[in-house]
């Protein structure tokens, strides 16, 4: 089995930890995020070519500025999940800004974007045009719901394929 380091980045309250919790069984308490600034979980996935991949998920505490984030946590990452809150449009802007900063630090490594909280349709703030604009740039962005679990598995699997690609 191959292990890869995957980071989860995004603004405060976008649902990174909830997404991870939906996807994996927690190994450590959430309090690590507020103390150390990161919480680790692992998830094993089987890819289409029968490759077994263990994703070591670094759930980095939310921030809107990479300078406030411990960049060491990004070191050696094979990919990352860029998480935004679909009910707060500004979090997508933050996510895109973080992406640029990550590329500056870690290079052009694979990523998958999540527009989370898709279950809150009434509060959704990101227009379809903007979402399609993301897709047009050949970025993988998924509308996900940590509450319902919608698309979360797909998003992680997509990133796994990219990392192994």
């Amino acid at each position: 089995m191959i292990s890869k380091k995957i980071c989860m980045v995004g603004d405060f309250g976008v649902g990174k930890s909830s997404t991870v919790a939906r996807y994996v069984k927690n190994a450590f308490s959430d309090k690590y995020q507020t103390t150390v600034g990161v919480k680790i979980d692992t998830k094993e996935v089987s890819l289409a070519d029968d490759t077994e991949l263990k994703m070591v998920l670094w759930d980095i505490a939310g921030t809107d500025n990479l300078k406030q984030m411990n960049t060491n946590y990004l070191r050696g990452a094979s990919g990352y999940l860029l998480v935004a809150d679909g009910t707060r449009a500004e979090t997508l802007e933050t996510a895109l800004a973080l992406k640029k900063q990550i590329e500056a630090v870690a290079g052009n490594i694979p990523f998958v974007g999540l527009l989370n909280k898709a279950d809150l349709v009434d509060d959704w703030e990101i227009p379809d045009s903007q979402y399609e604009g993301l897709l047009v740039r050949s970025w993988d962005f998924y509308k996900t719901s940590a509450l319902d679990g919608d698309n979360i598995e797909r998003a992680f699997l997509a990133l796994a394929h990219k990392v192994m690609g």
Partner: peptide
Amino acid sequence: DAVSAMLTAIQDF
């Protein structure tokens, strides 16, 4: 895997 990652994180921290 989780322990080693967390250990690294703590070390970095």
